[in-house]
């Protein structure tokens, strides 16, 4: 067999192998997309997000309706109205961070160096899950708080008051933010105390 034909045969075999390899790669990718719908299709996750938010909005409407009714009913009694106003005032104080608060929640601790952008992302994540009050390294966050740019030296602690089970599970689940960072511990706490701003 001449040298030319040998080379041609080897070339043909390599081409065939290459074809099989490429085909295998695409098949695997296709299978992955089917088994992990979020890779190819975000709509289901968007629906979930809307579902969660609408449920929160309905809760808020229930609370506001109750407030409005109470305010209308108590219009003739200044004492009763004042009590309702105080209730609202307390909620606004909690949100603004102007008063010390306590409640169930979680504590996230990073024992490695973390970048400020990672802290920004994790604060964003716990707000999305429903954290009601947050502190970073014992510094309470308010509506206009910001994270200083740079590296945070360990240990860095983030405390959040909110549903402890939901917060912890959402953060540590496979693919969750802690899993993505590959560092950090999350601990549920029965009582967290946060100083005012």
């Amino acid at each position: 067999m001449s040298r030319f034909y040998k080379i041609l045969i080897y070339f043909g075999i390599c081409l065939f192998l290459g074809f099989l390899l490429t085909r295998q790669f695409y098949l695997n990718k296709q299978i992955q997309e089917i088994s992990q719908p979020e890779v190819g299709n975000s709509i289901a996750l968007v629906v979930t997000e809307y579902f969660k938010t609408n449920s929160r909005l309905r809760k808020q409407i229930d609370q506001l309706q109750m407030q409005r009714e109470k305010l209308l009913e108590s219009a003739t009694s200044s004492q009763e109205s004042n009590e309702i106003l105080q209730e609202n005032l307390q909620n606004y104080k909690i949100i603004s961070g102007s008063t010390a608060v306590e409640g169930e929640g979680i504590e996230i601790v990073f024992y490695d160096k973390v970048d400020s952008t990672q802290i920004i992302d994790i604060i964003n994540a716990i707000k999305n899950i429903g954290a009601e009050a947050i502190a970073v390294n014992n510094r309470r966050l308010g509506p206009k708080s910001y994270v200083e740019s740079g590296i945070f030296q360990p240990p860095t602690s983030i405390e959040a008051i909110g549903n402890p089970n939901l917060l912890k599970e959402s953060l540590v689940r496979p693919g969750g933010i802690i899993d993505q960072y590959g560092t950090g511990t999350v601990e549920k706490k029965e009582k967290i105390y946060l100083q005012p701003i």
């Binding site: 929160r56 808020q60 949100i95 010390a100 608060v101 306590e102 409640g103 169930e104 008051i161 909110g162």
Partner: peptide, 15 residues
Amino acid sequence: DGSFVIEYAKIAEAN
């Protein structure tokens, strides 16, 4: 125009 639902945080007793 979203929600501000407060269910877990309470004003600390000392305050």
